[in-house]
Amino acid sequence: MSTPVLSVRDLVVEIPTRHGILRPVDHVSYDIHAGEILGVVGESGAGKSMTGNAVIGLLDPPARITVGQILLSGEPVHALKGEKLRRLRGKRMAMIFQDPLTSLNPLLTVGEQLEETILEHMNVSQAEARRRAVAQLEEVGIPAAEARIGSYPHEFSGGMRQRVVIALALCAEPELVIADEPTTALDVSVQAQIIALLKRLCRERGVAVMLVTHDMGVIAEAADRVAVMYAGRLAELGPVREVLTRAHHPYTAGLMASTPLASQGRKRLVQIPGAMPRLGNLPQGCAFHPRCDRAQDVCRRDPGPTLDAYRGRAACWFPLNTEEKAAT
């Protein structure tokens, strides 16, 4: 297989606090290949956004990467700082934020923001930058792009603004896009359009996309593979169909059971008992064991097999849905 666009290897992010060191990302490994969408799913505080921020080098101090590697097309980028890191951002990896209302500068026109980004990363003239900006807006589906390029962000609707944000992220043709909850702040009908747009751009340009979300529907719709995170650790990693239909990790199974589906009619939704533990207060062993009905002694002692990018699917001692494999 070709070199993945993004390889996260054994990544640990730590935040030193007065009450000890917190570990919002704990030995996480995965790959994303060109043209592939990896969905990263989990509850608030599971470390999914933190992983994205770590990749693009936007961790807010004092959070920092303490262990592990981040490889962008094989090159290590986790130790880059300052100017070298800045040159990569936008040019080779880009990020899309949750709220299109706040991610655009209200005092600069859409065109100014696009042209600025293009001029920063590409060796083109002002006129060429403008032409590309218009083309980029057209590509993300802004009607009358030529006329709207001089508009300010507040003159666009929420969905259109998110399209502008996507155009901004993609305008310097990055290899990797980290989309951090790109649809959470949008209407449901607009959500589907934005997801479709992301999918189309990913396929057409061969961009690797890391789609961070807490919405299982979005994952099912868009992702090729899915990484389920729980309390900073990777709980399960695998192709989206398999993970969604035949979850190995009890947490994933619980998430699926608690997702409302129209096909199930008006049944009462299943809840996972309890809540995700706070980072400063993780139980020993597997972080999920207090909420897990399959937990045994070993789960309380040992955090379970670590998932890496190549082996294993669920970080669980007693995975579900593995009968046929166990039989062989």
Partner: peptide, 24 residues
Amino acid sequence: DYIRFARARGIREKSVNFRHALKN
């Protein structure tokens, strides 16, 4: 967020500070 987004797009610090932030 828009400052974060500007940084994530690789806009120079000088431009982030004076063009994006100061005006606001």
